[in-house]
Design a protein around this nucleic acid. Structure first.
Lengths: 198, 198
DNA sequence: ACTGATCTTGATTGATCGTTCAAACAAGAA
DNA sequence: TTCTTGTTTGAACGATCAATCAAGATCAGT
């Protein structure tokens, strides 16, 4: 019964997010968790296994860590999507525009990831878009019938990742806000098109 | 008259793109350029100065490296935008879906960049969006008069970066294609709205 | 040929990296 | 007690990192 694994995962989630994977050393993890190297390597055979643990934690925690907080008091399915984006906006502001999506940052930092790692990154993205896609399906006839909901859900992720990237690069939330505003405009055009079909 | 500087920049552009900044060692640069460490440090005081040189090279080369090749035989201003995106598509395919935007990858990899580095990253993004914005301006009345052309240009970058990120994560161009398709749909809705104002 | 500035050589530095492992420790079963 | 099994300790390892620098080479100007 050692809480070592949880302690390490928690510290690694924060450090990988703050400094990235390559720039986080085992020594960083040890000093943060107050463990010895042997204990860490008893639980995780290698640094990459810590990364895998972190990605699994994000994957398994998307509901309670991300969706539930954002959707607390939102019912409208399309507003749920923008509530989710607004959750990211909050994190950007709270971090003084240094926030980066943990998954997106890792996806770009790791240039030749192990298949297992790449699969977990993809799985995280998929769970995210699937959640958005459920909202789109719930929106029903407010969107044109021919709408490719999977592609549109991916587009929401695209807008989020691109917006986060630019906001951090410029250290200015307004870059994120403009991306969301454009996405909002796109949704309004879609809703208008659904009402008055050509 | 030493071509050392150019040799290093060229090698660094490729290596930073392939492996990232942190994972590219000075030794990598030396073996690639067949130089000795002293020569490199004679030209660049530190590794970060190599990065700065690379970012300046991207900034100064955007016309001939990126825009001219993509716009060779395209006149229509809106098609120019999609020709630019198609250029990225080509690079994704040619790299077997390992392509990452050099600037975007660096922007996410460097978590606490020197102000000079951050400014250069931002400058690169700005030049890119400015080029797109010129296309939007050239499109004139095909877009609604109230269109925020700066925000829309940023949105094109957003779509590109997000699409590239997902295509690489999934090792599948179709993720990029879907992002472009959604952007295309957005432009078509805008053009339609411009013709028949509410 | 001489001088001074510029550039190159490559062995070397100290720090830090991920990882290992023999030894010590803890706790339950026999 | 004694044996077993699981866990922790932390010094140490070899590799690699960015960076240094005294010494030598090269070149232009005189």
């Amino acid at each position: 019964m050692s809480g070592a694994r949880e302690k390490i995962i928690q510290a690694a989630m924060e450090l990988f997010w703050l400094k990235g994977y390559n720039s986080t050393s085992i020594a960083d993890l040890l000093s943060r968790t107050q463990l010895n190297s042997g204990s860490l390597y008893h639980v995780f055979p290698s640094k990459q296994d810590v990364l895998i643990g972190v990605l699994e934690a994000y994957r398994d925690g998307i509901e309670q860590m991300l969706l539930e907080p954002a959707w607390g008091q939102v019912d409208d399915p399309i507003e749920k999507i923008f509530a989710l984006l607004n959750g990211y906006r909050t994190m950007i502001v709270e971090s003084e525009c240094t926030y980066g999506c943990p998954i997106g940052s890792l996806a770009l930092e790791l240039h030749e990831p192990d298949p297992k790692v790449r699969d977990l990154l993809a799985e995280n993205f998929e769970n995210w878009t699937r959640a958005v896609e459920r909202c789109l399906t719930a929106a029903g006839k407010r969107l044109p019938a021919k709408t490719d909901k999977n592609a549109l859900a991916q587009f929401v992720l695209t807008a989020m990742e691109g917006g986060v990237m630019q906001a951090r690069t410029h250290r200015d939330v307004s870059y994120f806000d403009r991306a969301v505003k454009q996405l909002r405009a796109h949704f309004e055009l879609l809703e208008k098109a659904a009402k008055a079909p050509a």
